[in-house]
């Protein structure tokens, strides 16, 4: 049995060596391996992305959380999903594995920044690029596009790109292969494709990479934000948040099972600002506790949130059990039923 043994051992050795080499290349960073939760294929996301967030749809749909609460939905929403599926063949819960969204700061484009009819110059929403992995029925997706607007189809280097050509907006969808879809404004999609060909991308933004790498592996949802967008966020939200000190960067991630847990770390300009932010959050928590008389669940929520500061960082942790969400939903439902036809109480948490 010597000859076959020799052949098997040789084959095994070659294969093992090859696989080991590939993984060591991945670990030692000579390769473009995943950065934190961002899969390797999505590394071509623009380097100037300010906020990157993601959702592991597989983990979501496979979770107990989804089993408990995901099946319910407003009839309108279910119909809308069915309509999407009918048109595009896409059932998000079934066909999408993960979603990564990159938000880029608005580029200075004089045309797009022209004042609207009322003469008021408004901030346009940020440019966003959505990277989706899953299974797409290319033919039905394509068929669905002309129904929603005039679109042009282009095939380039094995990639199918649909561009919206209606003039109202400049969206584009690119089907990279049967398992990857990228959508967003034309410029961002083009940037993504160019990056993909040249090997450039999010890795070029060292600050963002370090933020991404601090996301806990295996998180179901996560988001990281750099200063370029966040600095404006607080001022633009308005209301009490306008008084908050600027946040330099934030990392948030969480999971859904066995309970919903979320961890967020925000970095403020200095320790003082951090304390201020923490105080605002603690105040919010106290407000919830105060309303415990009306709703016992609110006290539990307040208890589940912990806020801590560490130099210029604020750590927020929240853990909400599925039972708590369930009882919240029930009480919200009963509340709505009691006040049928009446606007919900302003204290009600939806």
């Amino acid at each position: 049995m010597n000859r076959s043994r020799r052949l098997i051992l040789t084959a095994a050795a070659v294969s093992a060596l090859g696989i080991t080499f590939s993984f060591s290349a991945r670990v030692t960073g000579t390769a473009r391996a995943a950065v934190g939760p961002v899969p390797p294929e999505a590394l071509a996301l623009p380097a100037d992305s300010a906020v990157v967030m993601g959702f592991d749809v597989r983990a979501l749909t496979g979770s107990q959380f989804y089993a408990k609460f995901g099946g319910e939905g407003e009839p309108g929403r279910v119909e809308a999903l069915a309509e999407i599926e009918r048109k595009t063949g896409l059932n998000p819960a079934r066909d999408i594995d993960s979603v990564v969204v990159a938000v880029r700061p608005q580029t200075e484009d004089p045309k797009s920044a022209e004042p609207a009819l009322d003469g008021v110059r408004r901030h346009r929403p940020e440019n966003a690029l959505v990277f989706v992995t899953g299974r797409f029925d290319a033919a039905r997706l394509e068929a669905s596009i002309p129904e929603t607007g005039k679109a042009s189809k282009e095939r380039r280097d094995g990639v199918t790109i649909y561009r919206e050509a209606s003039g109202k907006s400049n969206g584009a969808v690119a089907l990279l292969d049967a398992g990857i879809l990228v959508a967003g404004d034309t410029a961002s999609v083009d940037t993504f494709l160019a990056n993909r060909a040249s090997g450039r991308g999010i890795r070029d933004n060292a600050a963002l990479v370090s933020l991404l790498e601090s996301v806990e592996p295996g998180s179901t949802f996560w988001a990281v934000g750099g200063p370029s967008v966040l600095s404006r966020v607080t001022s633009e939200i308005g209301g009490p948040a306008a008084n908050l000190p600027a946040i330099k960067q934030v990392v948030a991630y969480g999971h859904l099972d066995p309970e919903v847990g979320m961890t967020a770390t925000a970095e403020a300009a200095d320790a003082k600002s951090a304390t201020k932010i923490a105080d605002v959050l603690r105040g919010f928590s106290a407000l919830l506790s105060l309303q415990a008389g009306q709703k016992a669940e609110l006290a539990q929520i307040a208890d589940s949130i912990s806020v801590a500061t560490e130099d210029d960082k604020v750590h927020v942790k929240a853990t909400i059990t599925h039972e708590l969400i369930d009882s919240l939903k029930k009480s919200a439902g009963s509340h709505v039923r009691t006040h049928k036809g009446v606007a919900p109480d302003e204290n009600e948490i939806q």
């Binding site: 993984f23 991945r26 960073g29 473009r32 090997g199």
Partner: peptide
């Protein structure tokens, strides 16, 4: 440019 490690999990 992508390197051998890029698709290592895919290889497996």
């Amino acid at each position: 440019p992508q390197g051998a490690g890029f698709g290592a999990p895919d290889l497996v």
